[in-house]
Design a protein around this nucleic acid. Sequence first.
DNA 1: CTTGAACCTGACACCGGTGTCAACTTCTAC
DNA 2: GTAGAAGTTGACACCGGTGTCAGGTTCAAG
Lengths: 137, 137
Amino acid sequence: MRIGELARRSGVSERSLRYYEDQGLLVSERSPGGHRNFGDWAVDRVIRIQALYAAGLNSATIGRLLPCMRDADGGPNEFATGRLVDELTAERARIDRLIADLSLSREILDETIAAASAGLSDPAPHLPAGRPPAPRA
Amino acid sequence: MRIGELARRSGVSERSLRYYEDQGLLVSERSPGGHRNFGDWAVDRVIRIQALYAAGLNSATIGRLLPCMRDADGGPNEFATGRLVDELTAERARIDRLIADLSLSREILDETIAAASAGLSDPAPHLPAGRPPAPRA
DNA sequence: CTTGAACCTGACACCGGTGTCAACTTCTAC
DNA sequence: GTAGAAGTTGACACCGGTGTCAGGTTCAAG
């Protein structure tokens, strides 16, 4: 598929996809004219890359991590070196703290939103005040 | 307490605490010489502020949110306006997506770390490879 | 009074993935 | 062949909470 479709299917902007390739996180075949061509596997990979970025990892770390992770196609891997394992372990700890912060923030938002819809005598007509169930992490 | 102690107790740098005050998120008494003095309630408040920042909210949004949230001391509140509720609802949705990304990232890290300690014939002597249980959100 | 730790204000820099625009080329459907 | 959608490279800007340094002031203990 071409970059536009990959962007649509993965939910990541074309700009970011090109950046990922620049950083060596994504590879593509090229058409004779230079247009990128991606396989289906790229969708999953992009989603993972995006998740890792969202978790606060930088390009360099993701670049070291990618060849060591079990891919969707169960492709061949390297094993993470001790140094990389240390780094990933630290990242994991940071992510755990971050998840804790996010959960606290979510609670605060929930309470505040609930208090508003309970307390306002002027119910906003656009949102039916039904809050979705807590996300299953 | 003074700013140093608050920093220690909340785990937030003095620099950030002064910035929070600048942004109107935190109030302090001042000593005759100008030194800040905080009550015990400040610790909880700072932790919440920090969590909200970590969740990606900016100063302006936090500033609007703070007076509407139920504080630790159950202090008096305003109610969030409809416009603010909309904003908070959007933020909550974003946080939910972010938590999903973080969970995926954590899984990837876990698998990669586990694969490394299982696959390496050279066990790094510093970490006993016991992975902590998944964090109870 | 003296001394050293703690605090004050103000300023500068940073980071790095992403949005956006420009100018041009390639692809595709008719 | 031709028009228009889609893709390409390159460059510029941004954001905003935080780290850090400088130079000066305050506080508390001896």
